[in-house]
Design a protein around this nucleic acid. Sequence first.
RNA 1: UCGUAUUUA
Length: 249
Amino acid sequence: LVTWNSMITAYAENGVLEAGAEIIFKQMPQRDIISWTAMVQAYAQSGKLEQARAFLDRMPYKGLVAWTSMLLCYAENKQYNNARKLYESLPEQDVVACNAMLIVYAHTGEVLLAERMFDAMPVRDASTWTAMLTVHAQVGHLESAKQMFDEMPQRHQVAWNVMLYVYIQSGHMQMAERLFDLMPQRDVVTWNSMLAAYGQSRQTEEAEDLFGRIPYRDLVSWNALVAAYAHNGHLAQGRKVFESMPARD
RNA sequence: UCGUAUUUA
């Protein structure tokens, strides 16, 4: 059973659903909650909302893992009311499900609901804090974000990145630059955020320069650089970068 | 063997 389940996830990770994951699912001699959940998640991850929901509804025993996947799938597809309904119908919840709901609130900008949930949570983990920070970031509440950042029990790299994003989103590029320099660590997301910020604030030279200093570039870095050129009308340079990209999506 | 946080589009 474990082997079969692993096969489902393996196909799902490669995006082979109908022709892979689902065939395995049908062929397996018996299925447990993990098999069903893996199917829900496979479809949820690839944005196939109806099919994910169909599997969820047909599950003989449902569980938080499947519900949470479905919840995030709704969030991803901007079906916030469905997300809300699903969340309200949950017979149980845990920190991950609540975190997922916080992300929904981040998308909808419902700070008050998010705060109420955050305050009511019996357990908070690193994702809880950064999700809540993201809520403030999304609505541009610089002060609340900063306060939250200062209150955090532990500052994970992601929290630093979100805080950087808060400054960028609220148009405080100098503060962003200062924070960037102050950060204890920078990962590829940190670099990419800064790169995108330069692109959006029409600082193409800075973007270019920063790109040259990124220790490890991923596809997002390349896309951000192309976007920076495109956004500022430098089509020829954008094209040149596009052609030299190691990969494209 | 399954779910959650940050960046480009």
